[in-house]
Design a protein around this nucleic acid. Structure first.
Lengths: 118, 118
DNA sequence: ACAATTGTTCAATGAATTTTGAACTAAAGG
DNA sequence: CCTTTAGTTCAAAATTCATTGAACAATTGT
């Protein structure tokens, strides 16, 4: 089974910018980019907001064409649509992710993980 | 006299993205970029929306740190804060402007101008 | 002084967005 | 079959956003 995604051509710039203009969704995208290639399921992002709200934000990202969601059993595997985004908007994703990395005020996925002592 | 602007450090990425995620404001930024260096007054943008609404959008751009507004007599001279944006978010503005240039669905300042015949 | 130009502010409205909890579906495991 | 796991859907509430018209302020030109 597969969920509705826009084609690469249907991805709209104002839409992508608006969708990325939300700290929670920016955190999701950053994390996806940091785990590029590895499909993640929704539960990875549960420290950002409630499950219901997460479902909403992930739907926004998918509908804007920023992420791809694959239904596998009872979970959704989420990936960044990097090739499509890079083709439609060259350099945009990279500059957004790099800028986000410098912003200490942004929420981060896994911010409360236990750190291994040196 | 001078209007309130955020410092370069106060410019926030999600804010900038959200503000650019609006077709009217994207058109304003594109036009400013195409006339880089030349300060423009508000009336240049009047084909995009009503005067009141334009005032609102220009305030959004200024408050987000995307533009600088200088009060000169009865008009406001508007410029892109390119250096600040480039320093804070390298590559972002350029990729947004380039992507916008490829999007025929976006509104454009001066779209109804009389074309000189060849 | 008067009128025109340039642009803002205000209050109102409608629309879209974000967030929540309760109820739900569907697959997986025992 | 029953329960857990994973995530969605729905309606409601709260917030924010975009747009409008009327009134206003300040400068400029006559």
């Amino acid at each position: 089974m597969t969920l509705p995604h826009p084609t690469a051509e249907q991805i709209s710039l104002p839409n992508v910018l608006a969708v990325l203009g939300d700290p929670t969704r920016l955190a999701i995208v950053r994390y996806l980019a940091s785990k590029e290639g590895v499909p993640l399921n929704c539960s990875q992002f549960l420290d950002l907001c409630s499950k219901t709200n997460l479902s909403y934000h992930l739907a926004k990202l998918r509908e804007a064409g920023v992420t791809r969601t694959e239904v596998v059993g009872t979970s959704r595997l989420i990936t960044l649509r990097r090739d499509d985004l890079d083709r439609r908007f060259p350099g945009l994703l990279d500059s957004v992710i790099a800028a986000a990395a410098d912003d200490a005020a942004l929420p981060v996925v896994g911010a409360h993980e236990i750190k291994i002592q040196a």
